[in-house]
């Protein structure tokens, strides 16, 4: 039984980056994590805009670029105002490296298969990020304005998650119908 524990811990580490932030992250680290998470979703959206011909998928991707850029611009303006320098950290690095793997996966797909994989990844990614923002970043943030921005950001990202769930559901229904 003892041998299983490290394997399980390793699995959680690899699949859930929020588990990585076991120590309370500092505000400069929180800012870096939130910013990185936004950039990652913009990166996925850019792949979708290159590869997808589906109108709903393209509209969703354009919305992701706009919204995440808007949140990141707010975050940048805030850290500048507070005189805080975002600090790279293990959680940001885990997010970035997992995203690189996912991007490579998505780039191997095209057509409806790409659309479904993109939609499913958007659901999974937003649910992971939202859990981390909700249970790790917001409670750990010490500056009030940073906390408030994270709270509004969380509502925006929860909206994206629901939107992505609807999109994924419609795409998989369409796929099931096409196989009948």
């Amino acid at each position: 039984m003892k041998i299983i524990a490290p394997i399980v811990a390793g699995f959680i580490f690899a699949t859930n980056f929020s588990a990585r932030a076991a120590d309370t992250p500092t505000d400069p680290q929180i800012a870096h994590i939130a910013y990185t998470a936004g950039l990652v979703d913009i990166g996925y959206a850019e792949i979708a805009l290159q590869r997808s011909k589906n109108k709903a998928v393209r509209e969703f991707a354009m919305e992701m670029v706009k919204d995440h850029k808007a949140v990141n611009d707010k975050a940048l303006a805030l850290v500048k105002k507070l005189g805080v320098t975002p600090e790279d950290n293990a959680t940001s690095q885990t997010i970035a490296s997992q995203a690189a793997t996912k991007r490579a996966e998505l780039r191997r797909l095209s057509g409806p298969a790409f659309d479904r994989a993109y939609a499913e990844n958007e659901v999974a990614y937003h649910s992971l990020v939202n859990a981390a923002v909700d249970t790790q970043l917001i409670p750990s943030a010490s500056n009030g304005e940073l906390k408030d921005l994270l709270k509004v950001g969380l509502k925006i990202f929860q909206g994206h998650q629901q939107h992505a769930e609807h999109m994924a559901e419609r795409l998989s229904r369409k796929h099931a119908a096409s196989k009948e």
């Binding site: 919305e63 929860q158 909206g159 939107h163």
Partner: peptide, 8 residues
């Protein structure tokens, strides 16, 4: 609702 953020 909001199409972009259906939680609204």
């Amino acid at each position: 609702y909001c199409r972009l953020h259906p939680n609204m």
